[in-house]
Design a binder for these strands. Structure first.
Length: 668
DNA sequence: GCTAACTGAGCA
DNA sequence: GCTCAGTTAGCG
């Protein structure tokens, strides 16, 4: 055969048996690759998006890679006939795999970017959210930046001692804050749910918690909702410790800076990490504390599969790594309350007397209108007196000018004639236009009654600023919201009109805070509408100076507003938790959704069967797909997650049409 | 997901 | 006996 193929190479290719060819290839490789002398087997987690391939595969470590193929390194391997990326999980002496091992194609970098505890964490997160580790690791480990890896080297951080005076100032009025901090500095792992009193300099408080943890020789992880919060806590950390102990991990900075800071953490040169949700996976050395601020903010929910929530990631991590935990906010989520209820975490709160000193909240009824505006007399008086010397914050639930319009006569919502999106006004003199497609509708006519006139049932921040400017002539008005968010306000007299989450911080706090149109947020048809409304009010109201006034315009008897008046977010969360339990909703129950083509979903539900204690609700149409909701009591949550993960693996292996599974969907 | 191996129809 | 398109198992 060899004689013939040498004489006729063209023919050889044509007639060669493919089996023989493959065998020849294998034989050639086997002779070329010399395995490493010790632990020649590498367990590799390949980066492929298929659920059933979420397990380690063994590869041969070539002798040339004996030193660089370290656990945690990025590698390239031949998988299913193509080169794929993967992480080297471990080196072992032998393989369980009966066949011949393929060699590692390449060690991309000997940098151990995937720490063992992050593998464990990714496993737990993947299991809880019925997703794959590869998906989780894509969130956890930032893309490599080779130049940065070569150049970057940060000096190791110096030991620190905690400053009790600064801590006492930052945490003033909270009990038992000093014991909590002392425990941290002592190397302990206390777990707490912290409801901050209004006016609290929470960035300074978080910085102190981190500093006390660092003083015990351990690292800390601080997760906040957005980059504005990162900037504030960054400043507080610099204030507390200088800038040689922490890094900030956010998606805002470029790939190079992101990877540089990640490396400083992975190498143990920086042990305080501050960042947004993805930072929850940062490989902090000697982790002693995980903390999250304002865990009710929906920015903490990752929008990419498997949709983990930063609070849940940190809870899993605190459990696995036996760290301290701090879940803080001005408001309190039902999930945080659940930690208190079960005794897993303690409360840190301000006593009544402190709260009374910090703020006075009153409610002005929206019925009694003055001066043709939405500001009742009582609220107007509070604003006017504060405006003599101080800034005033006005929170308005919606941005824009007139964010929704309706027929003046019959109240039919005004819709775009092209795409039936909602119409809005951008300013006092602008024609109505569609919020979705932008089409202008200067000659809108009501399809129901033929009327031409429009009214604005909801007033936006722009028009609110205009109204208030007229009400207080000569007072400067600053707007913050939408794509123009201001981080800070001036300390002098002035009106600051902001949408929820966009409130600027005033240097010494606001003299008064006015919460407008509270009915709007309460009326939303969402499971969390009231909890979310109270959270937004608390976050705005908390920006008052000590002793400042807060006026909410709305229905005085509403429980959420009552909770605001009493400044009792914990009591509200408790009440809410009880109601949700009654209604078989989270956190007493775990929910998961399955979405997909009708046939595929039907098939998936059949395959899932009826696990013990799981109710299947629906399916109901969602666009051209259908969605089913699965519900099980809290105790069965882990089993439901596991069943859904197994379902995804089986379906993936059988190449069935994909259905999207979401555990703990933030909204329904 | 992808590749490689397998299958059977079609033709010499 | 061989090729080729279509199908599908398994991925180390």
């Amino acid at each position: 055969m060899s004689d013939q193929s040498e004489m006729l190479p063209g023919l050889r290719a044509a007639v060669a048996d493919s089996k023989a060819k493959a065998a020849a290839t294998r034989a050639r490789k086997a002779t070329v690759v010399e395995p490493a002398a010790t632990d020649p087997v590498a367990q590799v987690l390949v980066d492929v998006p298929l659920a059933h391939l979420d397990r380690p595969f063994d590869y041969l470590v070539p002798a040339t890679a004996a030193d660089s193929a370290v656990p945690g390194a990025r590698v390239k391997v031949r998988f299913a006939g193509q080169d794929v990326d993967g992480f080297l999980l471990a080196r072992t002496a032998a393989s369980e795999h009966p066949g011949r091992l393929a060699p590692l194609r390449r060690v991309v970098s000997p940098e151990p970017v995937l720490a063992p505890e992050i593998v464990t964490l990714a496993g737990a997160v993947a299991e809880r959210y019925a997703g794959s580790r590869a998906d989780v690791l894509r969130l956890a480990v930032p893309p490599r930046h080779a130049t940065t890896e070569r150049q970057s080297s940060v000096p190791r951080d110096e030991p620190v001692t905690a400053d009790p005076d600064a801590a006492a100032r930052a945490w003033a009025g909270h009990e038992p804050a000093s014991a909590y901090l002392a425990h941290l500095a002592d190397g302990g792992s206390p777990r707490a749910v912290w409801s901050a009193a209004p006016g609290t300099d929470w960035p300074a408080a978080l910085a102190q918690a981190a500093a006390h943890t660092l003083a015990s020789g351990r690292g800390a992880l601080l997760v906040v909702p957005d980059h504005r919060d990162v900037a504030r806590v960054d400043a507080a950390l610099i204030d507390a410790l200088g800038d040689g102990h922490h890094v900030t991990l956010t998606a805002e900075v470029g790939p190079s800076a992101r990877y540089r800071d990640f490396l400083a953490v992975a190498r143990g040169h920086r042990r305080i990490v501050l960042g947004t949700r993805a930072a929850a996976f940062a490989p902090v050395h000697d982790l002693g504390l995980v903390a999250i601020w304002d865990d009710g903010d929906d920015l903490h929910a990752e929008p990419r599969a498997p949709y983990p929530h930063a609070r849940e990631v940190l809870l899993l991590r605190a459990e696995q790594q036996q760290t301290a935990l701090l879940v803080g906010g001005f408001a309190r989520t039902v999930e945080a309350q659940q930690l208190v209820r079960t005794g897993w975490a303690h409360e840190i709160v301000a006593p009544r007397a402190v709260l009374r000193e910090r703020v006075t909240v009153t409610i002005a009824e929206s019925g009694e209108r003055e001066r043709g505006a939405r500001v009742p007399r009582a609220a107007y008086d509070v604003l006017r007196s504060a405006l003599a010397t101080e800034p005033v914050l006005v929170q308005t639930p919606r941005g824009g000018y007139a964010p929704s319009l309706a027929c003046e006569r019959c109240r039919t919502p005004a819709r775009c004639t092209h795409c039936s999106g909602p119409l809005e006004l951008a300013g006092p003199a602008d024609p109505p236009h569609c919020r979705w497609c932008g089409t202008q509708e200067p000659a809108w006519t009501c399809p129901e009654c033929g009327h031409r006139g429009l009214r604005a049932p909801v007033v936006g921040g722009g028009r609110t600023a205009e109204e208030l400017g007229r009400m207080f002539p000569g007072v400067p008005v600053l707007s913050s919201g939408g794509d123009r968010v201001r981080a800070t306000a001036s300390g002098g007299p002035g009106l600051v009109v902001a949408t929820p989450g966009a409130e600027p911080v005033a240097p010494d706090g606001y003299g008064a805070v006015l919460l407008l149109d509270t009915w709007l947020a309460l009326g939303r048809a969402d499971l969390r509408a009231e909890e979310e409304a109270l959270r937004r009010w608390c976050n705005a109201a908390a920006l008052v100076r000590p002793g400042g006034r807060v006026v909410a315009v709305g229905p005085p008897e509403h429980p959420a507003l009552q909770a605001l008046v009493r400044w009792d977010p914990a009591g509200f969360a408790e009440r809410e938790a009880a109601q949700r339990a009654e209604a078989q909703l989270p956190p007493a129950y775990r929910l998961a959704t399955m979405t997909g083509e009708p046939g595929a979903l039907d098939d998936a539900l059949t395959l899932l069967g009826a696990p013990e204690g799981v109710d299947v609700l629906g399916p109901v149409p969602v666009g051209d797909e259908v969605r089913a909701v699965l519900r099980t009591p809290r105790a069965g949550g882990a089993a439901l997650s596991r069943a859904l993960g197994e379902l995804q693996r089986v379906r993936s292996a059988r190449k069935l049409d994909a259905v999207r599974v979401q555990v703990d969907p933030p909204t329904l």
